[in-house]
């Protein structure tokens, strides 16, 4: 499964990482190398083998439905990023996190 520049652009978009034309070319060659390594898997017959998602065959523990968290908005929002686009203010207002307008 050979990768193309279009594939790189598509996955970069899915991953929301801006990739310039020249970066895309460089990335293509590196990713092609890594995929070449990965391709070794295709030689293995895995028919009937149950996929292994976890190191231990355990089941989910359940938490009692009890409130254990208190409001820490102020502490958390101290880490808010800088708004940008000319503003050096934190990207919060009235307790809300600010982002460019969401269009529906």
């Amino acid at each position: 499964m050979a990768l193309s520049i279009e594939d790189i652009k598509k996955i970069a978009h899915l991953a929301r990482i801006e990739v310039s034309e020249s970066e895309a070319t460089a990335t293509l060659s590196k990713l092609t190398g890594i995929l070449g390594l990965i391709e070794q898997m295709q030689a293995v017959d895995t028919t009937g083998i149950v996929p292994m998602s976890h190191a231990q065959e355990l089941h989910q523990r359940l938490r009692d439905d009890v409130v254990t968290k208190t409001n820490q908005r102020e502490a958390f929002q101290k880490n808010a990023p800088v708004l940008g686009n000319g503003s050096t203010q934190p990207a919060v207002a009235g307790g809300l996190y600010l982002v460019p307008k969401v269009i529906e």
Binding site: E18, A80, P81, A91
Partner: peptide, 25 residues
């Protein structure tokens, strides 16, 4: 790590996707 609640946010961006793409790049 999308630049919304903490972490790096690009200093210039035009819209939401641009903010994501640049902040993460």
């Amino acid at each position: 790590y999308d630049g919304v609640r903490y972490g790096h946010r690009a200093s210039e961006y035009s819209d939401l996707n641009d903010m994501y793409n640049k902040s993460r790049a």
